Simulated assay, not measured.
Amino acid sequence: MPGMTGMAGMAQPVNADAPVATDTVAIENFAYSPATITVKAGTTVTWTNRDQDPHTVTAMNDGPFHSPTLNNGQSFRFTFTEPGRFDYLCTIHPFMTATVVVTP
């Protein structure tokens, strides 16, 4: 139509799996939120359990971090010193998975 300029101004879908630049992750509703975060090397990430059930934050493939069991309101912190992709899960509920992407 005359005067239209393509898709400009239209709402675009949000990719729920897109990495989010943050250093905090909530554990709620049996999920890590956001599911993928991006941080720079040297950043400390904090996970906080907001569920009533206990959870862990455990790196896969013999990765560098493993939290104790976190009860409601408890947090775990880890400082990422090397770039890379770090997939992790809850050892109590292994269907709960997420990723930290560390950039230089």
Rank of each mutant, 00 (worst) to 15 (best):
A16Y: 14
G42E: 03
T24N: 12
W47M: 12
S75C: 09
R85V: 13
R50C: 00
T38Y: 06
F76G: 03
A11V: 00
L70W: 09
S67Y: 04
L89E: 15
G9S: 13
T58P: 01
F78M: 04
T97F: 00
V102K: 03
P19V: 03
V57F: 06
S33F: 05
T81M: 12
T22Q: 06
R77V: 13
P13V: 07
D17F: 15
T97D: 10
H55A: 04
G3M: 11
S67G: 04
P34L: 13
V39E: 04
F65N: 02
F78N: 01
T81D: 14
S33R: 14
P19Y: 11
M7E: 09
A21L: 11
T79H: 02
A35H: 06
D51E: 13
V20H: 04
F65S: 01
P94T: 01
T56D: 02
C90R: 01
T43D: 00
P13W: 12
K40C: 01
T24M: 10
P64L: 03
F95E: 07
L70A: 03
G6E: 12
T69P: 02
V57P: 04
V102W: 06
T58L: 03
A59M: 08
T97M: 07
T46V: 07
N61Y: 14
A98K: 04
S33D: 11
C90Q: 02
P94R: 02
F30D: 07
T38D: 10
W47E: 15
T99N: 09
A21R: 03
D87C: 02
A16Q: 11
P64H: 07
P54H: 08
F95Q: 05
P13Y: 09
P19S: 05
A11F: 08
P13I: 00
T43L: 08
M4N: 05
F95D: 07
I27L: 15
T46F: 01
A41Q: 06
H66N: 12
Q12K: 14
A16H: 10
M1C: 12
V102R: 08
Q52D: 15
Q52E: 15
T48I: 15
P19W: 09
M1P: 11
V100W: 09
V101A: 03
P13N: 07
F86M: 08
A35F: 00
V100Y: 03
F76Q: 05
E28F: 15
A8M: 05
C90H: 04
